[in-house]
């Protein structure tokens, strides 16, 4: 009737047995597993191909797509493609321009969007909901529908083919998404801290700068990163608004390089150019994958 005798020491199995439910492979599950792994493997392969090809000669790229690069290494110029893109195709200058433009624009976007999102969510002003929706609708307007009047208008002020003009456009057109994203963050903050600050006699603007902004720090950083990624990759507006090599951003330079390079069979340089655009994003992604993914999918998940 009693069983307290310590059952002989048991050795744990290397892997606990899965539940019987998880074992049977239904056809659908088997198909799903196959597709998932195939898809994942393909993505990894493609990334490998891109990095490897940036160090290859065109012949190697096309005849030995999976081999490690050799020819340029044997000739003692392993970085030949990257250097070609950097120097001859203007990616070096474009890289600097893009870094500065993207950094400044992202910061300014957040500086403008944060107070607006705060005003829309936490000041209890009537009609805030409707105004928030107005911003949300802005996310649905394709850039193509505003680009012609924008171009004409900016030309009036001599702001076409001008980095400051592009900066203005980037800031303005990024606001709807950023404001919408940040309203979500501000709405989720607790009321108590704001009330406590008010009781302590802090002025509303002081409350915003010293209490609410630090609390929303996570959201602000996410907004900063997402805007940086978006602008780094932005192509249409840079094609329309920049037409001098000296002003090119990376995406614009890549666009211009594309036809010239394929004409000269400069595929090594072309892949290197693609890599220069993609790899900084990959590094950012490896560091911040979780934040980027949750940030980009946040609006939809609510």
């Amino acid at each position: 009737m009693t069983t307290t005798a310590p059952a002989g020491k048991r050795t744990p199995p290397r892997k606990p047995k899965p539940a019987p439910t998880a074992r049977g492979l239904s056809p659908l599950r088997a198909l799903g597993m196959a597709v998932v792994w195939l898809f994942t493997a393909l993505n990894v392969l493609v990334l490998y191909w891109l990095v490897a090809a940036a160090f290859k000669t065109p012949i190697e790229i096309f005849t030995k797509p999976f081999a490690l690069p050799r020819t340029w290494f044997e000739r003692g110029q392993p970085f030949r493609n990257l250097l070609y893109a950097w120097d001859n195709a203007g990616f070096g200058r474009a890289f600097l321009i893009t870094v500065v433009l993207v950094a400044v624009a992202s910061v300014v976007i957040v500086l403008l969007a944060a107070p607006a999102a705060y005003a829309l969510t936490r000041l209890g002003v009537r009609g805030s909901g409707g105004l928030t929706n107005l911003f949300a609708i802005g996310m649905g307007i394709p850039f193509q529908t505003v680009v012609i009047p924008l171009f004409i208008g900016m030309a009036e002020f001599d702001l076409t083919n001008d980095l400051f003009g592009l900066f203005l456009i980037y800031v303005a057109l990024s606001l709807p998404f950023t404001v919408f994203l940040l309203t979500g963050f501000f709405r989720s903050l607790p009321d108590e801290l704001e009330e406590a600050a008010a009781i302590d006699g802090a002025s509303p603007s002081r409350t915003f700068f010293t209490i609410m902004l630090p609390l929303a720090r996570g959201g602000l950083i996410t907004a900063l990163i997402l805007n940086a990624i978006g602008l780094w990759n932005e192509t249409l507006l840079s094609i329309v608004f920049l037409n001098e090599n000296a002003n090119f951003t990376l995406a614009r330079a890549l666009f211009a390089f594309n036809s010239a390079a394929s004409y000269q069979s400069e595929y090594g340089g072309l892949v290197a150019g693609v890599a220069i655009v993609v790899l900084p994003m990959l590094v950012l992604y490896l560091l911040l994958a979780r934040r980027i993914i949750t940030g980009l999918t946040l609006g939809a998940g609510k």
């Binding site: 048991r10 744990p12 047995k17 019987p20 439910t21």
Partner: peptide
């Protein structure tokens, strides 16, 4: 809902240890 690493479970005379 949970696997059995050692031993058995019977319901009536049926060994259900590995049944779904």
């Amino acid at each position: 809902l949970e696997g059995v690493d050692d031993g058995t479970i019977h319901i009536g005379d049926r060994d259900v240890t590995d049944l779904p």
